[in-house]
Design a protein around this nucleic acid. Structure first.
Length: 516
DNA sequence: TTAGGGTTAGGGTTAGGGTTAGAGCCGGTGCCCTGCT
């Protein structure tokens, strides 16, 4: 222990060329090295990845990093390889089957692997991992467990079982935003109630908030035009609909001269997404009209404006999205354009996010019918088609059914009593989740209509204290557009930059020189 | 000559039909797999 403590700075210098640790890093690394499970909530840009990359380098054994996006894994691996760390790999569906098999067979030669929660459920990979010494199990962007696990990506909820199967390695869950509620959800899902919490504040003192109520979308567009005619700064506009993002991008392109506008959402080809992201990072695009798909892993420091054309579904999401402004600490603004009709779309999304009671009945009926045939046919994906379930709804059911032992290895196990219990349990989960989401939306709507300080109301339920604003506070505290004089973006900075820096920028997707 | 690299498509999804007028009825988030030149 003492030995480690003395040498950590040296290791940081040797492997990452930094002289000192940033806030929280050293404490987390010491905990991890001592074999303690840690939940680390560190502000974005504070170098979360050092917290596991340093231990991975100096310790024996393998470090597994569960990452939500392939693009994030690829970024990280590129950066590490650029610093001459070769024993690292991202395993995902972009790899050919041959390539993947090779990695599986040589797992013992790696010190750090990045993998999605879905792939971690595959028996072949799991079996290989069980044969080697897994030292550290990291969940990057751990809020995904809570945010996506329950309905969208249930494999996030299976991580605790995986950790047990891997002989309980040390667990490190990292995120930039997690409310106390999300924190306990993460610890519950991982079945690690005794995790050490290393929580650092997430309020942003350099972001001012403006709330503007308008009567319809036309007025919102007019407001956008007027804002962008005054300010020439890198900006994101968030939408809850892909179509609205595309349409608005096209309107802005027509009506704003000298401004490069693009849209970005999850329905686009991967290649286009990467290209848009790159152009924005390099200041070749000024404004991105996007859905919530745009965000994780974007580390552009000089975004000055985050505009919400639609309200987000939760305040947590708002904090994450608005938090992408002013990473460089300079004065930035979050604007929310609100009209009374705006609750309709989020309501639709919440109502359709989970299957309803009819779907539940149908699934049970269908499975019962099959289980009564002599051969107990395996459950196959036909069920989606038969019962007209969408993919996410079926994934939700499948997770729940497996959890209750109704499906085992794709075979139906019929036990009348267990099924009754399972039915009521799943029914309750659906109700509770929907109610939870409705409450979260209600919080957003209350915040939007609040007359109090927006900063205070936004942060106070998430952390015990919050800092005073560095520049201006919010529209409820008297801040108006006239007060805002953002620093001008200077596109020539990039052109004059040192050639090594520019080359690095080109080679490292989504990142500048900072390891994050 | 062959292996490896590169590009590309589509699947997991939705949907309704007017005569009794009267104005916006809106759908987010990602993996993985198969098969193609």
């Amino acid at each position: 222990m003492q030995q480690h403590a003395l040498n950590l700075e040296d290791a940081l210098q040797t492997y990452f060329q930094y002289d000192t640790f940033r806030i929280g890093q050293k404490e987390i690394i010491q905990d991890v090295l001592a074999g303690k499970d840690v939940l680390g909530i560190l502000p974005t840009g504070s170098g979360k990845s050092i917290c596991y990359q340093l231990p991975a380098r100096i310790e024996e054994g393998l470090t597994i990093v569960v990452s939500p996006l392939i693009s994030l894994m690829i970024d990280q691996v590129k950066q590490l390889k650029a610093t001459n760390f070769k024993e690292v790999v991202a395993i995902n569906s972009f790899m050919s089957p041959t390539e993947r098999r090779n990695v599986y067979q040589n797992l013992v030669n790696y010190k750090l692997i990045y993998v999605s929660p879905e792939l971690l459920q595959q028996q072949e990979l799991l079996n290989r991992l069980k044969q080697i010494h897994v030292r550290l199990f990291v969940i990057d962007e751990a809020h995904c467990i809570s945010q996506w696990g329950h309905e969208f990506r249930p494999d996030y909820l299976k991580l605790s079982a995986t950790i047990k199967e891997l002989n309980d390695p040390t667990v490190l869950a990292l995120s930039a935003t997690a409310t106390p509620e999300v924190q306990s959800d993460i610890m519950n899902a991982l079945e690690k109630p005794a995790m050490i919490k290393r929580i650092y504040p997430m309020d942003r003192e350099n972001i001012a908030f403006i709330l503007e109520e308008v009567s319809n979308d036309h007025e919102k567009i007019d407001r956008l035009i007027s804002i962008f005619n005054t300010y020439h700064v890198p900006a994101l506009i968030y939408f809850t609909s892909r179509l609205a993002a595309e349409n608005t991008a096209s309107i802005l392109t027509q009506r704003l001269a000298n401004r490069d506008v693009a849209f970005y959402h999850g329905g686009m080809e991967q290649v286009d997404r990467v290209s848009i992201q790159q152009q924005f990072m390099n200041d070749q695009l000024d404004i991105i009209c996007c859905t919530s798909a745009f965000g994780m892993g974007i580390n552009k420091s000089n975004i000055r404006l985050i505009i919400h054309f639609h309200i987000p579904l939760q305040l947590e999401a708002y904090i994450q999205e608005v938090g992408r402004a002013g990473r460089d600490g300079k004065s930035s603004v979050g604007v929310l354009l609100f009209s009374q009709r705006d609750a309709i779309i989020p309501n639709h999304i919440i109502q359709n996010e989970l299957p309803d009671e009819t779907d539940l009945k149908n699934v049970f009926h269908y499975l019962y019918t099959i289980s009564q045939t002599e051969t107990k046919n395996p459950v196959d994906e036909q069920i989606e088609e038969q019962l007209q379930l969408n993919e996410n709804h079926w994934k939700f059911f499948k997770y729940q059914l497996e959890k209750h032992g109704m499906i085992n290895n794709n075979y139906i196990v019929y036990q009348e009593n267990d099924w009754k219990i399972a039915y009521h349990s799943i029914e309750q989960v659906i109700k509770q989740r929907m109610q939870y989401k409705e409450e979260k939306l209600h919080e957003v709507l209350s915040w939007v209509q609040s007359k109090n300080c927006l900063r205070k109301d936004l942060y106070q339920s998430f952390q015990s204290s919050y800092r005073q604003s560095m520049y201006q506070c919010c529209s409820n505290c008297g801040f108006s557009w006239n007060d805002w004089k953002p620093e001008k973006t200077n596109k020539t900075i990039e052109k004059n930059a040192d050639w090594k820096e520019r080359l690095k920028n080109l080679l490292l997707v989504g990142e500048t020189h900072e390891t994050n």
